[in-house]
Each structure stands twice: as C-alpha cells, then as structure tokens.
Design a binder for these strands. Structure first.
Lengths: 225, 225, 225, 225
DNA sequence: AATGAATGAGCCTTCATTCAT
DNA sequence: GATGAATGAAGGCTCATTCAT
C-alpha cells in the first residue's frame, strides 16, 4: 500500500495535472486553457481538476506555487556558494540562477513562460507571489549590490541598480519570442545562457564600478574642502 | 458624402471601436475581453466588430497596429532631435521615448500595457510587429551603441549591450505591477519616468565606458607587441 | 413589421418558452427541469432561456407571474358578479373561481400544479407572490366571511373560518393525485368541479350558520342578565 | 455478533442515513438534496447510500416508509382512545393526530414536510403510500363521519364531508410557509396546533349538524306524504 | 463488510458569430 | 450600409454512482 501523497510522480494524477496545466497555462494563458484540455494532456478524467484542486482557478494557483517550488529548488539564488563567497561571486550566482530559472529548456520548460505571463497579466495570485518569493529575492540582490557600491550609496540608487540588473536578466525571458526571430543565432541552451549571464555580469559590474568612481570623486572633492 | 476612413474621429465607429478595444484588451487580455463589452464601451452595435473588422481576432491585430502607429507617432525614438545630435543625446532620446511609450499614463494609457501583453503572450500578430517595428527600432539602438563603443567593438557585443539597455527600459513596463507593490514610493508620472530614464542612462553609459576602457587596454597591449 | 411584444402568441418565442417551462416545472419541479428540455419543448434554441429571461431562475419567476396573471384573469374571484351581490353570492364565486383556478383542465393545465409545488417547496419567489396575490385574495375572503358571521365575530374566528374554506378548496388541488387513485369516479371536469364547489359551499355555510346560532345564544344570554 | 437491522439506533448507519436523508429531503426536496450532503449529515461514507439502499431514489422510498411508520406509531389516529369512544371523540382524536403528524415541531419535525412534498409532487412512491396508509386512514374517517351524519347520508356526501375535514387539516401543513408570512401571530407549537384542531372540530361539527337538520327536514317532508 | 478515490454524463451559462431585415 | 435578434458550440462545474481495495 502506497500512502505517499507524491507517489511515483508519473502515476500520481495530482502531479500529472500540475505538469499538464503548467504547460497549457504557459502556452495559452489562464482563460485560453480549457479544463478539458488539461485533463486530456494529463490523461485523467475531466472531473479531476475539480476533484483534486477545487476548480480551475485554484489549480492555477497551485501550478504557480508548484512551479516556483520546483525552479527555486533546482536553481537557488546562491547556486551552491559557501557562506564566505564574495559579493561578486554571489552576484554571478544570482544572475545565472535567475536566467536559468526563466529560460531553462529542460523538461519543465514552461515555468519561465508561465511566470512571464503572470507578471504581464497579473491575476490575484500575484499578491501571494510577491510577498513569498519576489520580495526576499529582490532584497537579496539589493544587499549584494549595496555591498558592491559601498557605504556611500543611497538606498534609492541601490534599488535602481538592482532593478537594472533584474531588467537585463528577465528581458531574455520576456522577449525570447522576439529575439529568436531577430537573432536566430542566439542560442538558449546551457552555454548560450551562460554567455548571456556573463555579459550581464560584465555590463553591470562595469556600471557599478563607474558609480564607485563617482563616489570616490565626490569623496575627494568633499575632503579637499 | 464623407469617404475619409478616419472621419471626425469621435463619430467614426471604427475609431471608437479601436480605442474601446485597446483599453479592454490591455485590461483583461484578448480572451478575457468580450465583443459585447467592446461594443458597449464604443457605443456601437454588437455586430460592428464583425462588420468593420471581420471578427474579434482581426480587430485585435488592428488594435495592435493602431496602437503602434499612435505611440510611435507621439513618441518617436528621436524625440525631436536634429540630425546632428551626438550619440549620447540620441541614446537619451531613445531610452526616454521607449519608457514613455510603455508607461505614459496619459489618455491612451493602454498602449504600453497592450504591447507588454503581446510580448509575454505572443499571438501570431507578433510576426508582423517584429518586422515592422521592433527590427528597425533595435537596429537604430544598435547603431547608437556601436557609435558609443567605438570601432573595436564586435557586433555581438554591440547587440548584447543594446539588449541590456532595452531590458532595463522594458523592465519597468513589464514589472510595474510588482514594483508598485514592493516600492509604493516609486512614481510613474512624467517626473518619475524621467528619473528612471536618467538612471538607466547613467548605468548604461557607465557600463559602456567600462567596455571602452577595456578596448583601450587591449589596444595598448596589442600595439606594444 | 410586427413590434407587438406578444405577437401572434404561437410564434412568439417568449410566450412559447413560458408555456413550455410552466408545463415542465409543474411536472418535474424547478431542479428536475433542464433548460435543454424547456427549449426543446418550446422549439427554440438552447440559449433562448438566458437570452429572453436571463437565466433559469428568472424564467421560473416569470413563469409564476405569467401563470398567475393568466389564471386570475380567466377566473377572477368575483366571477362577473355585480357590485351589489350578496355575501353568499360572493362566497360562491370565490370558492368556484379558486377551484377552477387550481384544477381547470383546459389548455394551460399546469398552472394549478405549479402553484401547489411552489407552496409545498417555497422558493424565494414565494415572497413576492404572497404580497401581490395571496394577501389581497385572503383579505377578500375574510371580508366576505366577516359579513356572513356578523359583527359579533372576532377577527381570529373570521380568519380561522376563512382558512377552513380555503383549505377545503385547495385540498382538491393538492391531493388530486391521491383522490383519482382512491375515488376514480370523482370527475374533475367542469361539472365535477362545480359539484365540489357546491359541497364546499353547503358545508361551509352550514358551519358558519352554526357560529351565528352560537353568537345569538351568547347574545341572548348576555341580554338576559 | 449483532444482526439486528435496527441495532442500537445511534450506531446503526442505516438508521442514521434515514434520519439525515429525511431531514434533507424535507428541506430541499429530492433533487435539491445531494447524496454527499446526506452522508455528511449522517457521518457516514459517501458510498453508504448505494451500499445500504441501492441508490438515491431507493433511499427516498425507504425514507418515506420509515417516516410513515414513525409518525403513525407516534400519533395513531385513535390517539389512545378506548374501543367504546363516541364518534365525536374519535373525530377529535383523528383531527388532532392528523395535524400533529403534519406539523409536530418535535425532534423529527421533517416527517410532515416530507409528506406534504410527496403529495404536491407525487413520485412513483406515492402508489404504495396510498394503498398502505392513506386508504385505511380515510376509510376510518369516513366511518366516523358516516356515524355522525346518520343512516340517511349518502356515501358520496359522507366522502365529501370527510374530504372537507381532511382539507382543513392538511391545509395548515401545506400552506404553513404562507401563513407564517401573513399571520406571524399564528403559533405552530403544541398549544397553537391544539387551537387549530379545536377550530376545525367546531367548524366541521357545525357543518355536519346542519346536514343532519336537513335530513330531518327531508325526513319530515317525506313522512308527511 | 465497508470505504473513498475516481468517474463521466449532464447541468447552466457565456459568447463570437450570423442573417434577415 | 447597419442593425440586433437569434444561434449553437463550448465552457467550467456538479453529482450519483462505481470499483478496487
């Protein structure tokens, strides 16, 4: 007798529904996806969505949670760094893990697309997401950026620089559809993503260093007086 | 007899439908919007969508085109610069106009939101968009960035730097829903957007300068041999 | 061009729906009746119920109203009496019209059954009914009974006697299914109903006369003192 | 091992289902009640209805039988009278017991409401009911009425008078929903029901006496010839 | 014997589209 | 040209019933 709620993962209809729904929602959006379609993909009865999740909307929220858990587990923002890693190393890990989370072409390739949709067309499920996931994540990046900018940086500046870095990363998630059309040579496999992360690192570190130079200039000007 | 398709703009049912549909599509997405609702907002008969546009989907494409024409006309990438403006001035104009196009809170505030949706959830209408609008726009930015990086920059580097700049800009369009939740103090009015553009300029110019320094270093190393 | 909302009554889909729904609701109750069945009976499209009435429940309320209007029009409680009719004549008319309303086997035979259901299984539609129809009707009967009992009768007594009369009448409506099983000889055609009304009149007038006798006895006893 | 089908009554799931179902059916009707709800109220598994009764409809029939047995046992038509009670005493007992059966607000208050539904909305279960319960009951009343009217009364007259009495009684069961709305002062507790029974007795005995007077008149007229 | 997870037919409703004016 | 009444396919969901334990 198997009472394990997760069972063998392929047999478990709950799990199969989450996977099928995630893919479908990512492809056609919440309203564009029919319960019938999800059940067919999952190979389950049409009533299972209501039976296991209590309705289409509850399923959607569950899919969002499930997707987040899966990606954050697979690609944690620290990416296996030790506690004593430098700010630069931590930034590198943050950028790469974020890109991988959004664009990993492995099996559950729908996670990134689903999240992109949710942010462009925020449903009420977004509120929970922001508090549970995005806020701590952005806070983490801000502390890294703050460290890199030094103590002279103002909070607002730190925040804006953090957003500049995030913007570069998520851009490839959002605009992938356009980019593959305009630049077919751009790869989105593991190496291609690594290259994108490297560029973003280089670009951002250069920008941050420039901020530092400015602080030094200001500092010197101040001390001269 | 008035055969001018745009007529007096307020009387013209075609135009009223485009405006009403744009607003509705931006708010609730393509599937979340009903033809009835659009016609009610436009004050027209329920059959007008099919009559004037041949269906809901054709209307959607028309709205996209209409929106683009309107925004590109109102905020051209050059923003009124003369032909002999410096690369830096042109970048400034590009960044600001892009942000304004996405986030202008003025009367037709739905243009940016609609475009954000379309990219996160690309319909077949995207293909036309890419060729007509995005390709020339990105090309324009690349030529500016190429000028700023100097002749030593490789095309791939130019492209990536351009994407970094675009990513920062569109980020605020995409993630506005999240940002207003996490940073309620961030304004999205005219001044707020100006501030965002200024930061992006500062961040990006800093990054590009760092690229330049590297080229110089490389160049010196090369000439020493 | 026919703009008359009632049209030719057979052609009018609204009317056909009301008739079909009335019959179906009377036979199987509100929940037991499907919208599909109603539309099939009415020969209309499945969407017409929502189109004309805004939903199944709204249709039900409309049917109730329609039924009441029809029966109260066909069999008004006064049954064509002049203003100067005696109390006894008015009671006769009241009883007969009530029975006819409940048991008329003419074309719209479902009116009585539907009302019986509504009272045994009161839906929220009952509230409106009580105020609009039942209250004035019962008040009318009470004034007749009050007249027959004389000024010595107490309001409570009048009310109870009125209920006794109503109870006798509606009984045949409620228990018809049982009566036809137990007394197959009982006819429910026009003559049969007339006979029932006659009996109820005889029974009730006898009872009321007995009340009168008691008042007189009481009165005499009082005046003797 | 306890094979007694009624067991300890509280433990017995069959019994608990009958009680729960009776209450539910009386409140929401057959179709308005879900098997799930019944099982939840009864504290049993969802499959028990099919397991013990073979389906929802079979359960309904069983509830009807069960209800009848219970009420007829609690309120027998004789109400504890001796064999040698007068016709008047037996009528009094009949009327009161009938009213109590329909309107008793004690613990199993649903019996009366359920029966009222069944008659207004006769299912196929009604046939069995008529033969087993109603026929002997009405026969009993007719013999009482026959005794009170005397040997001159015709069977048809006896029958109609009996129906007049039954109609008055069941009226309060059927129209309770309306009466509480129109006459909020009418109580349906033990005393209130006693008062209703008293009125019905007074009204009916008065009517029957009037029939007697008429027979006497007729008899005299006949003997004069 | 008894359970409860799973089923699938069928429910009401919505909505883009059509067609006869 | 323009209308709006009418359509019917398809949507999410409920619920009595089944079946493997």
């Amino acid at each position: 007798m198997n009472t394990n709620p997760e069972q063998t993962s392929v047999t478990n209809p709950r799990r199969r529904l989450l996977e099928a729904a995630g893919e479908a929602f990512a492809e056609r959006g919440f309203r564009g996806t029919t319960v019938r379609e999800i059940c067919e993909r999952a190979g389950t009865n049409i009533a299972t969505v209501n039976y296991y999740f209590g309705g289409k909307e509850k399923l959607y929220r569950s899919v969002l949670q499930y997707s987040l858990n899966a990606t954050m587990t697979k690609y944690p923002p620290e990416l296996g760094l030790t506690e004593r890693a430098t700010a630069r190393e931590r930034l590198q890990a943050f950028v790469l893990s974020l890109i991988l989370r959004l664009l990993d072409e492995g099996r559950p390739s729908w996670h990134g697309r689903l999240m992109a949709r949710e942010m462009a067309e925020p449903t009420s499920a977004l509120n929970g997401l922001v508090d549970d996931v995005i806020r701590p994540l952005w806070g983490q990046l801000e502390s890294i950026v703050g460290e890199l900018l030094g103590r002279r940086a103002e909070p607002k500046e730190i925040r804006l620089c953090a957003q500049s870095i995030i913007g570069q990363c998520v851009h490839y998630g959002r605009a992938k559809a356009v980019i593959v059309r305009l630049y077919p040579e751009q790869r989105f496999d593991s190496d291609g993503l690594k290259g994108l992360a490297d560029h973003i690192m280089k670009f951002s570190l250069g920008a941050l260093r420039q901020f530092n130079r400015e602080y030094q200039r200001r500092g010197r000007a101040l001390s001269r007086k």
